[in-house]
Amino acid sequence: MKLTTKQLTLCAMLTAMALALSYLENFFPLSLAIPIPGIKLGLANIVTVFALYALGPVQALLILLSRCVLGAVFAGNMNALLFSLLGGVTAMLVMILLSRSRRLSVYGVSVGGAAAHNCGQVAAAILTLGNTAPLYYLPVLLGVSLFTGALTGLIAACLFQALAHTDLMKG
């Protein structure tokens, strides 16, 4: 894989944006509504969706991993690493698959990603706790993922629309 300078810069920018979004999520603690500590909305998936289309799966995965590791280091919380990694990677895998189908728009891909993100997080919670209790909240989380998915899809769509004709995308 050969990264152009432009692509590298874009990767770095997107990682920073993803980190900022992860931080932003702390202001909307989903755990108040769903009592599984560590569960996040998954707003950083916006970056994953964007990177997937704009840069490709490998770069998108790199951004994801950097975001997860840096996020955990900044927060000083290694518990969070498993949640964000499992959630993020599952979401990414599902979105890679879904984006192959050219029929789905960015909304469909995002919804699938959000659902996978929440499944991954429940799996992380089960692993961390050594108990299947969090499974009980999976249906609610799947329902929530419809909205977070639509939201990330909307924001990603706005981004693509805004950037489609800039030369940022022509690298």
Partner: peptide, 20 residues
Amino acid sequence: MRWSPKLRPNGWDGLAAAIV
């Protein structure tokens, strides 16, 4: 841009949401 995604939701997106 490697490829441009569809930006408007369509029936297939509805299907994806319905599956979830």
